[in-house]
Write a protein that binds this DNA or RNA. Structure first.
Length: 485
RNA sequence: GGCACCAUGGCGGAGUGGUGACGCAGCGGACUGCAAAUCCGCGUACCCCGGUUCGAUUCCGGGUGGUGCCUCCA
């Protein structure tokens, strides 16, 4: 059980050793809740979810503290509230709820804590006060800025050197003129649209970065084990978090490991609102099972760009169908009760412990699937229709555990293959199909060729009719059943 | 201008100094009236040029091509 992670801070893979094995601290930058989360947000969440599961497996479920915040104070939220004529809290409550529902549908485990920025304003004010007292920040007309020239390590995470940073073109209104250095960033700014809190340095609201520093310290401590987020957050957000936290806490380290996931893009290019190719998770969930979306998100290494296409989803669905056939077959062989005792196979888990290599893990899973059907087929060819205990122990058991470990195979196979379709009607048509076939076989035996052909044609007609409705008939030794495509 | 990253079969995508995972699609065969599912088998894939080496897709150098960040963004 040796977890290695690529640490963005050092730019290489490192063996992960927690500060305290009884309390692993994991922080993930959560969403700003002003609209629906999109599939790119989902990727970031699913990647951390897998890391969370791996950590829980190694150190025990009670020893990993996973914090994913909700940012519920932000200019975009104020704008959305104004636009929709809703109170701020109405907007934030609504989209925070939807975010959590969407991630639950993707089978992401809930974080241990989900702090809200507005519940930590006092912590932010305290931290800003400390930075001012220590001379790392300065006030200017109701604003408080962090002075990057006071922090020597500024730029270490992103690899940027202060002198190479281009000045931003889209900093907040009136901020540029008040800054001492172009790269200084705002910690506190004046009230906007009635959104503000009283503070020693004037009534106002927090800048973007301070909330994470405050929430991390309040919920996890001054030095945490792992901090996650999308690559785009590396600079400036995470860089600024490090600067604030280290200076306020008088520490040289803020997060020991930085884990950044790459972007998810559309085949038409970068996902962006101006291109109109942003896909909300919610929309996808209307067309695809959450497990299909989850698998699609895990079909590339988290540090590689993932191109999101319809084909990727189709492929993921096909792959999951294969896994559910394993369960379906096992159930039909009477192995369902056994599967509850599924246990881990450390050999497989070690593949994912190598910097969250989900691909190699899935490869192992597929090999188990192939072995399962191979062994079952071998037995059946020998006329044995009861599976051996060894198939259960060495194949099915690890297969079920591994799939569950990654957050798959939650559904019943019946439910998976039939979904919400019109069960009674299709059951009836499949019975008609089987009757016609049985009669055709009987007619064939009695040598009535004309009747044989006619009955087979009748059964074929039923099959084609169902096919046009997206239903496929599968015929086994005990009669036929159906599934949706 | 600065800083990173990537280049594998039809597609997606791991990995390794020495018989090139895995998935999807495809092909051949078994089974089957047909179909589906399953099983068995198949495909001479590692951007180019040098170097190191007995041997490189894997290491080093150069080139070409692509991407990201430096500005709100997962």
């Amino acid at each position: 059980m040796k977890l290695t992670l690529y640490n963005s801070l050092t730019r290489r893979k490192e063996l992960f050793e927690p500060q305290n094995p009884a309390r692993i601290t994991l922080y993930n930058c959560g969403p700003t809740v002003y609209s629906h989360a999109h599939i790119g947000n989902a990727r970031a969440a699913v990647v951390v979810d897998v890391l969370f599961r791996v950590l829980r497996h190694i150190y025990g479920g009670d020893h990993v503290v996973y914090v994913r915040n909700i940012t519920d104070v932000d200019d975009k939220i104020i704008a959305a509230a104004t636009e929709q004529g809703m109170p701020i809290s109405g907007i934030t409550e609504k989209y925070a709820r939807i975010y959590n529902e969407d991630l639950a549908a993707l089978n992401c485990l809930p974080p241990t804590h989900q702090p809200r920025a507005t519940d930590h304003i006092s912590h932010m004010i305290g931290m800003i006060g400390t930075l001012l007292d220590k001379g790392f920040a300065y006030e200017a007309d109701g604003h408080v800025f962090f002075d990057v020239s006071t922090y020597d390590d500024y730029g270490k995470l992103s690899g940027n050197r202060l002198e190479n940073l281009r000045s931003g073109d889209r900093i907040g209104e009136g901020e540029a003129a008040r800054k001492r250095n172009e790269a200084d960033f705002v910690l506190w700014k004046p009230e906007l649209g009635g959104v503000g809190w009283d503070a020693p340095f004037g009534r106002g609201r927090p800048g973007w970065h301070i909330e994470c520093s405050a929430m991390v310290r309040a919920t996890l401590g001054e030095v945490i084990d792992i901090h996650c987020g999308g690559v785009d957050l590396k600079f400036p957000h995470h860089e600024n978090e490090i600067a604030q936290s280290c200076c306020a806490n008088n520490r040289t380290t803020f997060a020991r490991f930085w884990v950044h996931n790459e972007f998810l893009n559309m085949d038409s290019g970068k996902m962006s609102k101006s291109l109109g190719n942003v896909i909300p998770i919610r929309d996808l969930l209307g067309d695809w099972d959450g497990e299909v979306i989850r698998l699609a998100l895990l079909k590339a290494h988290y540090r590689s760009e993932l191109i999101w296409t319809e084909d990727l989803l189709r492929e993921s669905k096909a792959q999951l169908d294969g896994w559910y056939r394993v369960i379906e077959k096992a159930v039909s062989l009477g192995m369902d009760r056994d599967m509850r005792d599924a246990r881990p196979d450390e050999k497989f888990i070690s593949t994912i412990e190598n910097d969250i290599n989900t691909m190699e893990f899935l490869s192992g899973l597929e090999c188990l699937k192939t072995r399962f059907f191979g062994e079952v087929e071998k037995k059946e060819r020998l006329g044995e229709h009861t599976p051996g205990h060894e198939i259960f122990i060495s194949i099915l058991n690890p297969f079920v555990f591994m799939a569950g470990f990654l957050g798959f195979l939650r559904s019943d196979p019946q439910e998976w293959f039939k979904g919400g379709r019109d069960t009674d009607r299709f059951d009836r048509r499949v019975r008609d199909y089987d009757n016609a076939r049985a009669q055709a076989v009987a007619a064939k035996k009695s040598g009535n060729e004309a009747k044989t052909g006619e009955l087979f044609r009748r059964s074929d007609t039923i099959r084609e009719e169902l096919q046009s409705e997206g239903i496929i008939i599968e015929t086994g030794p005990d009669g036929s059943s159906w599934r949706q495509t």
